[in-house]
């Protein structure tokens, strides 16, 4: 009990409690992800002044407004290049990008791809709620084929990104996927990733009952969580095909890639400075 009270007190130090209540809907999954993130950061004993959180725009993008560290709510899709600037200028800081699927993979897709390729030392927390929550539930780059959204009234003809596959193909040293049902695994994954170097990607399948679940017969937060619980399969060795997400289909979760020793862009640039000053 007292351990829990302690955790709660510490967590409150990491939150801008004066800004609560937050803007998220009751039952939204973003809070679960934020909670897991804060617990992992606290367990890691990272000094607050060494942590920077950067978000884009969206419901998930509002996270930067609640964490009580240097935190930036940037423009739609541009959290990653903003974070690149911070990290490259101050390699001693822990820079975390906390943003939504549309922000990171549609409008910001080019930045994701290139930052991963360059292996910037960033932790990417990607909240995938299958939709553009903030703008009212349009389909986005992760909406499963066939799903109903405000802009796919007859079902989605589009094919979604396979985010772990994408990240792995770009050489990201740490790639995992969890759902908001897997709180402990998620927290442990963030905890582990915080201690690694390079472009680390954690995708979290999260519920947006308000604008996504409602149109896909999962109106309540519980029904979405039940879907995650019943359909998730942990498989760290999943093939790329198995990682693919389908409408109401299986969700393969796990830690798909975890390799050390790949130098980050920031580390490689130290060598550039050394050569230039010879």
């Amino acid at each position: 009990m007292s351990q829990m009270t302690d955790m709660r007190k510490t967590e409150e130090e990491w939150l801008r409690t004066e800004r609560l209540p937050h803007v998220w809907c009751p039952g939204c999954g973003i809070g679960i992800v934020l909670n897991a993130f804060l617990r992992a950061v606290i367990r890691r004993n990272i000094p607050k002044e060494k942590m920077v959180v950067v978000s884009g725009i969206g419901c998930t993008g509002r996270t930067a407004g609640y964490v009580n560290v240097d935190s930036f709510h940037t423009t739609h899709g541009r959290a990653i290049p903003f974070a690149v600037g911070v990290k490259f200028a101050r390699p001693d800081l822990n820079v975390v990008v906390f943003s939504g699927d549309g922000d990171l993979f549609a409008i910001g897709g080019n930045h994701f791809v290139n930052a991963a390729r360059r292996n910037h030392d960033l932790l990417i927390i990607a909240v995938n709620n299958f939709t553009y929550g903030m703008t009212g539930g349009q389909h986005g780059p992760t909406t499963p084929t066939g799903a109903y959204t405000t802009t796919t009234p007859y079902g989605n003809p589009d094919r979604p990104f396979n985010i772990p596959h994408l990240a792995i193909s770009l050489g990201a040293p740490y790639v995992a996927r969890w759902t908001t049902y897997h709180v402990n695994q998620l927290q442990n994954s963030i905890y582990k990733a915080l201690n690694m170097k390079g472009f680390r990607v954690i995708e979290i399948i999260s519920q947006c009952p308000t604008v996504y679940g409602r149109r896909n017969s999962m109106r309540s937060p519980m029904s979405m969580m039940e879907y995650f619980q019943k359909n998730s399969v942990i498989n760290n060795k999943a093939s790329y095909e198995e990682m693919e997400l389908t409408y109401k289909g299986k969700i393969v979760v796990g830690e798909f890639r975890n390799v050390g020793g790949i130098p980050s862009y920031e580390e490689r640039y130290e060598e550039i400075i050394r050569r230039a000053q010879e």
Partner: peptide, 29 residues
Amino acid sequence: LRLPQVGGKFIEMEDEIGSIAAIIGASWT
């Protein structure tokens, strides 16, 4: 050529949107 000589940082970004976002981030440091 010159920035790393004086201890500065140069990065070629993927586009101009990324470029300005990066210098905004760097300016905050």
